[in-house]
Each structure stands twice: as structure tokens, then as C-alpha cells.
Simulated assay, not measured.
Amino acid sequence: MAERHVLGISGGKDSAALAVFVRHHHPEIDVEYFFTDTGKELPEVYEFLGRLEGFLGKPILRLNPQRDFDFWLREYNHFLPSAQTRWCTRQLKLAPFEQWVRPMLAAGDTVVSYVAIRADEDYREGYTSKHKNLKVRLPFRESGIDKRCVMDILESSGVGIPKYYDWRSRSGCTFCFFQQKIEWVRLREQHPEAYEDAKTYEKNALEHGSPFTWTKGESLDELAKPERVQQIVEDFERRKQRELNRKPINPLRPIENIVDIDDLFGEDEGGGACVVCHK
């Protein structure tokens, strides 16, 4: 019976920083890195995974669901996933992980899973183990690592952050329902084909009676109207400027002078995220 150490990579900054942190502080541990691929990820995510693999010096195992997004969409009667019904996280992220570790646990191995929840995220909870031999560890919380430290880890290691952080606040699917409206606008600018795919899914869902659109209160067709795009951009810029005015400037730490999109939710947008997706 062995002890296995596994660490899930989402394509986001926190899980990447955790991989760097564990490698630096526990080089004696043979960590198995994995990425659960929904098939609907941003191309920038795959580029970042390659960069991270170069630093870690070992491959990141790709876990693929046995059934894709389209299959599960049909199973859920074409209802889009939402904050209320996160079937995408359950079927495309958690289930492949559980299927992967099941033979390890059946063999009597102990599996230690490292999860990237920071010390400044008391409100977040990680994956809850349902097996006595599956142990969950939160190294960032144990070591007092917050968001600023995460950025320092990635910057000092040379790994950096994914390119999509220039215009988006999270990884995960291209049409993640937790996106802000400004992020939908930018998705349309950066990856118009992905935006059109999301529109098709939305239109099909509405025709089947789904009560949800991808973004609260309006369809992607409505969101893409020029006057609406202008309104969303102007509202976001006002919020961004307010945040910049509020933050003290630190010339010695330029990374702190960057406004995080994830902190700028509008009045009609709720915060939130799936830990296993965007961390």
C-alpha cells in the first residue's frame, strides 16, 4: 500500500502557484499533477499548462470525462448549468477525478490531494473527501499564503500568469456562467467563435424551456448590441477607476498596482466561482 500525492491544475493562477510552492518546499514528494479537460477551455489555458509543465519538469496528466458537455446538456434536458445547478462542475470536473483515484483507493493506497485555497479565502471550502484514505490538504491556508503571495510565487518562479488574465478573471470553460458581463464582452472580442458557440447553446436551451441565460438578466444576443457593449465597458471603467483611486500606489511592488477584475463585480452581477474550475 502506497501513499500517492495528487494536485489538480485548473489553468488558473492559484493552482499553478500551489504546484510551484509544493515543488519548492517539498521536493522529496513525488506529486502527480492532473488537469480535468472539459473540451471547452480557452486556448490560453493549454498554452499556460505547457509553460507550467516546463517549470515542473514533468507532464500534467489530462483527465477527460467519459461523456462530454453536449452529452450532459442533453441529460439535463438542455438546461444550462448555473450557480444554482452546477452540473458542469459535478460531471466534467469532479467525476473524472473520482474515477481516476478510485483504483488507488481500492488498492488500499492513501491519496493526499492538495487544493489551492488561500489563507485569505476563509469563505471557500475545498473538495470534501468521501473516503477515509483520501486526505485533503490546503497548504496555502496552512502557511498563510494570500493572493499577493500567490502573485509573488508565480512572478519569482518565472512561470508568470496565464495570458487570459489580461482580459478575464478566471479559467474554466469559455462560457462559464460566473463570468462578469465585461468578460463576455471581451470573450466576444478575443474569441468570437467561442462567443457564437455560447450563443448557440443558449438559444437551444431557451427553446427547450431553460430558465437560465449564461449571464444574469439578458441573453448574449442582447449583450452584444453596440449600445449595450458601450454601457458595460463604461460601467466597468468607472468601477476600475474607483478601485485604482482607493488603492495606495506602491512603486516597489508594481504587481500590487494592478486592479483584479475579480474584485470589480457590478451591481447586477454576483460573485462566486467553482473552486475546482478556476483555482
Rank of each mutant, 00 (worst) to 15 (best):
P254E: 13
K203E: 05
C274F: 12
G8P: 08
F140C: 10
V20K: 01
C277S: 12
Y114K: 13
W100M: 03
T85W: 12
H78R: 11
T110I: 14
L138H: 15
I182D: 10
W100I: 00
D14Y: 02
H131C: 00
Q84M: 04
I9G: 06
Y165V: 06
G126E: 05
R62D: 00
V22H: 07
K58H: 09
F97N: 01
L94F: 10
G160E: 10
N250M: 00
S171Q: 06
G39M: 03
V22E: 12
R124H: 08
R90G: 02
D260L: 04
D68M: 00
G270T: 11
G126M: 03
V22D: 03
W87G: 00
L56F: 10
Y114P: 09
C173K: 01
A17V: 08
G11P: 05
N77P: 01
K130V: 11
G50F: 07
F175A: 10
E243C: 03
L206F: 11
R118N: 09
T85R: 13
T38Y: 00
T200R: 15
G11I: 08
L63A: 03
T110G: 09
E207R: 14
L61I: 09
G160R: 02
F69A: 00
E193V: 08
E222V: 12
H131S: 09
L244R: 13
F69N: 02
A273W: 14
G270P: 09
R102W: 02
E207G: 13
D263Y: 02
V275Q: 14
Y201N: 10
K40W: 13
E142H: 07
L56K: 08
K199M: 15
L56H: 12
T85S: 10
S113Q: 15
H25Y: 14
E237M: 12
I60K: 09
E32A: 13
I232K: 12
Q66C: 01
F265N: 14
G54P: 11
S15T: 08
V229P: 15
R90Q: 09
V6M: 11
R118K: 10
R148T: 13
G11L: 06
Y76S: 00
E269K: 14
K181W: 02
I258M: 07
R74V: 01
D262R: 11
P27C: 07
L223Y: 04
W184N: 04
A205C: 04
V112E: 04
D122M: 10
R4C: 03
D263W: 08
G108A: 06
E32L: 12
S210I: 07
Y127E: 06
K130F: 01
D152F: 05
I249D: 09
R228Y: 05
T36L: 03
A95M: 09
P162H: 13
L264Q: 02
E189T: 13
F97V: 04
P251T: 01
E202I: 07
P192I: 02
T128E: 14
G50P: 07
S219N: 13
S157G: 10
Q99M: 02
L252T: 09
E227V: 13
E3K: 15
